[in-house]
């Protein structure tokens, strides 16, 4: 007992939280393999989780970055919906091409980032209020762009959407006895690249270290000569940019535009970041944790739905329960830290 507490007091908050997340994820996945078997034993199930959540991984990375600086961005679900709808209208009704649609997605993201970042960083307005307004604006704009949900029939886009990248060595034999290769969609590759880039950014780049400094204690960061406002501004810009990119990946996955797309994605992103060990108070968090946060969240949702509790409400309740659990764990860790520093 004594030794254990010794180990834990040496570990930083980031390491403890990351450790908890990874244990929870593997515990859950192995549990699902043992108790539910069948689906979870196939590698493709895992890749399907990745396919369905590539956009969430990307947006969660952005959310983690904002949360590390002590802010929050709840507009991302709205931005994703707006991007999907705008790209869908552009490709389908205006005969656009895919590269321009991609550029449009990034531009929408950047526009939200510019406005929200400027208001939060330079006018000192609470990020929650601004991004709440941003979320409602994006949702409203989505219906203004187009009301009815529809599928995109643009050939180049459909070809891109159906591109499957085969993962060698993970195939399985299906019911007919034919060997089927395991595959992932392009979005997953994009998501993994984003995770890698953001991980490197946070760990080795000067900007990344500044984010932690600002989130940990903005006063000290200011005294160290860090441009606090610019760092905050850039974090929001980056988050919204990733929301735009995530929006396009989401669009590539679903292939349609609808005002009800990505409902509650901001919630899932916040939950993933928190589960992944990013602290709401800022200054603590890492991208690998966020990746595992997304995986944990989607695994538990998968377990819930494959356990026959597929009524829509269970997903909401389990997400909320996990969020609550990890929030309380964080709160306890903060209290513990305070007690230690008091000693």
């Amino acid at each position: 007992m004594k030794k254990k507490s010794g180990v834990f007091s040496k570990a930083t908050d980031t390491q403890i939280l990351l450790f908890i997340t990874i244990v929870v994820f593997f515990g859950m996945y192995i549990g699902a393999m043992i108790f539910q078997g069948a689906g979870f034993l196939k590698a493709q199930t895992f890749f399907n989780i990745l396919n369905a959540n590539a956009a969430l991984i990307i947006t969660s990375c952005g959310m983690s970055i904002v949360m590390i600086t002590g802010g929050i961005d709840i507009s991302i679900g709205g931005v994703v919906a707006l991007v999907s709808m705008s790209c869908a209208v552009y490709l389908d009704r205006m005969d656009g091409n895919v590269p321009m649609a991609f550029a449009l997605a990034l531009l929408i993201g950047l526009a939200f980032g510019l406005v929200q970042g400027a208001l939060v960083a330079y006018l000192d307005i609470q990020p929650f209020i601004i991004t709440l307004a941003g979320m409602f604006f994006a949702r409203g704009m989505t219906t203004i762009v187009n009301t009815e949900p529809f599928n995109v029939a643009n050939e180049a886009f459909v070809a891109l959407k159906n591109t499957r990248i085969i993962v060698p060595g993970f195939g399985s034999v299906n019911k007919k006895g034919v060997y089927v290769n395991a595959y992932v969609e392009i979005g997953v590759i994009v998501a993994l690249v984003v995770v890698l880039l953001m991980f490197l950014l946070l760990r080795y780049a000067k900007f990344g270290r500044n984010l932690y400094a600002v989130g940990g204690n903005s006063q000290s960061a200011l005294m160290l000569g860090i441009n606090v406002r610019r760092t905050r501004f850039c974090s929001h810009l980056l988050c919204s940019f990733l929301a735009g990119l995530g929006g396009f990946v989401y669009f590539m996955h679903v292939g349609s535009g609808s005002a009800s797309h990505a409902t509650g994605m901001e919630m899932n992103a916040i939950a993933s970041s928190i589960i992944g060990g990013t602290m709401l108070t800022g200054g603590v968090g890492n991208i690998i944790g966020t990746l595992f946060g997304v995986l944990s969240l989607s695994t538990i949702q998968n377990i819930v739905s494959s356990a026959g509790l597929d009524q829509a409400w269970w997903t909401g309740i389990t997400t909320a329960a996990m969020l609550c659990l990890f929030l309380v764990v964080q709160s306890i860790i903060i209290a513990r830290k305070k007690r230690q520093s008091a000693k």
């Binding site: 979320m135 604006f137 949702r139 409203g140 704009m141 219906t143 203004i144 009301t147």
Partner: peptide, 10 residues
């Protein structure tokens, strides 16, 4: 439209 209302309020 009622769905577009949030944009104006935002």
């Amino acid at each position: 439209q009622s769905d577009a209302l949030p944009a104006y309020k935002a």
